[in-house]
């Protein structure tokens, strides 16, 4: 592992230590109703949607792109789930329909970026802006008067537990493993990083750069859809206006905290998850510390700034110079 991977890990450990000092019993984990409970579990549990979205974002950022529409994809997926439930589809089928909706959204983004060559930030802005409206329109399909629902199957995926462990954690771990295998055990990772680093050179080296970029957005849409299923099942309702609002920003932050660069060319899957955990543990720690929630955002900004400062080559050089001068 590279030395720069130390800083996000250190930040995470530090946040957890501070949280432990503020709130005794922070590390306590107990079993309630056949399921693990405790702050540490809670951090993992709540970080799952952000982490999933951030993993997709990491792949897209690896191609030198960005996907601003992930929050809107979550809104659309939520609306689709409730619509199909009201239509009486079997719930297992709805799971796949929801994932399909995410894939379609990803294909739309991928088409705009890879086939039409629109700049990623603009291309995905289109779905970001329109997606929540699409969600509201889907709600209209069944009248939209009562968007709440019950589904033992879908809620089981989100809030249930297997062998004391929350189901969403087990599934997220499985998705992470699958994604890691897909990126690192096939040549896809090399191709994505090559295209992100220099698309023209990759093309001449025989890589189908357009297809790779297209695929990255589809993957991102799929992962956002899974986050959308978890969030929708959690709240038992479709709320296209506010579900997953600003999640794209947390996801981008998680990627960047994990050492990814918006200049593209590198994917760090494991570190992206660490980045998502840093963000969630900050939120949790701030809440239990008793500080008003409005401090949360400011503290988050400060910690992120510190991590990025320590990762910056320029800052490190300046610090090194300062220490070196003093020593000599």
């Amino acid at each position: 592992m590279q030395s720069r991977a130390i800083w996000p890990l250190l930040a995470l450990v530090l946040i957890l230590i501070v949280a432990g000092l503020i709130s005794p019993g922070f590390y306590e984990i107990r079993i309630v109703e056949g399921r693990l409970f405790g702050n540490l579990i809670d951090i993992l549990y709540r970080a799952v949607p952000t982490a999933l979205v951030a993993l997709g974002m990491a792949v897209v950022i690896g191609t030198k792109g960005i996907d601003l529409s992930v929050g809107s994809i979550i809104a659309i997926v939520g609306a689709v789930i409730v619509w199909r439930i009201k239509m009486g589809d079997p719930h297992v089928a709805i799971l796949f329909i929801a994932l399909g909706a995410g894939i379609l959204c990803g294909m739309w983004n991928g088409f705009l970026v890879a086939a039409l060559g629109i700049q990623p930030i603009i291309a995905t802005l289109i779905l970001m802006v329109s997606g929540r409206g699409v969600g509201l329109l889907i709600n209209q399909l069944y009248g939209g008067t009562d968007p709440s629902f019950e589904s033992a199957f879908l809620q089981g995926l989100s809030t249930g537990s297997i062998w004391y462990i929350p189901t969403r954690l087990v599934l997220a771990a499985g998705i992470f493993a699958a994604l890691w295998l897909l990126i690192r055990r096939t040549a896809l990772g090399l191709f994505i990083e090559a295209v992100g680093g220099n698309a023209a050179a990759s093309n001449l080296a025989g890589v189908n750069a357009r297809l790779i970029v297209f695929f990255a957005y589809v993957l991102c849409g799929l992962l956002a859809a899974w986050a959308g299923i978890i969030m929708t099942a959690d709240t038992h309702t479709s709320d296209p206006v506010s579900v997953g609002l600003y999640i794209e920003l947390d996801a981008i932050l998680a990627v960047v905290i994990g050492g990814g660069s918006l200049a593209g060319g590198r994917i760090y899957l494991g570190m992206t998850v660490i980045g998502a955990l840093v963000i969630q543990s900050l939120t949790t720690a701030t809440l239990i510390s008793g500080l008003p929630p409005e401090y949360n955002l400011i503290i988050k900004a400060l910690v992120v700034l510190t991590v990025l400062f320590l990762q910056s080559a320029n800052a490190r050089r300046a610090i090194h110079r300062l220490v070196y001068r003093r020593a000599s």
């Binding site: 055990r185 096939t186 040549a187 896809l188 090399l190 191709f191 090559a194 990759s202 080296a205 025989g206 890589v207 189908n208």
Partner: peptide, 13 residues
């Protein structure tokens, strides 16, 4: 590796 790998296809790393 880039060219030889793209000749092999993405599945056969």
């Amino acid at each position: 590796m880039l060219s030889i790998q793209s000749k092999q296809g993405w599945l056969r790393r």
